[in-house]
Design a protein around this nucleic acid. Sequence first.
DNA 1: GATGCGATTCAC
DNA 2: TGAATCGCATCA
Length: 177
Amino acid sequence: MIGCELTWADSAGIIVETEAYAAIGDEAAHTFLRPSARRFVAERPAGSLYVYLNYGMHWLLNFLVSGTGARGFVLVRALQPTKGIDLMRTRRGLSAERSLCSGPGKLTQALAIDGSVHGKDVFALPYARLNATLCAAAVETDLRVGITKSAELEWRFLLKGSPYLSIPKKETRPRAS
DNA sequence: GATGCGATTCAC
DNA sequence: TGAATCGCATCA
């Protein structure tokens, strides 16, 4: 999904950062502890939006996805704003384009996404659209952010070199001698 | 019912 | 570094 443009009503952005959460065996995923999340995976089609309130204040946007034999969620963590940027500035209460969508809670605020769309099929929403814009996006992986369980998995995906990431890739720089 | 804990963000 | 703030799971 890195490099795809997410259009949401009046605003849009290119997805530059995501994280994967597996429905089975991933201790950091909601499915690991929550029956409601497991039911969601079992009952809904791929493309369903899983939107939940984090820390009591931030809406986080996930897509239910289906792979070869495995299902799970893709958390959208950062966008490069492309449309409705002034609208985003108003919703975010700041002007720096770099900061409008550089975090999972920031981008939902910028796009005005909240729990009212939880469970909806993104392909059935008239005002939502997901389309590829980059044919050969350079994708890097990194450890997931803010995770304590199953923390060793490199399931964060980044558009290489993008200035719109929530956090830059943790570099394994060669030790100075 | 009470308690604890986050897939975060922002100000100090 | 800490506060804001709420849904869900767990336990009494």
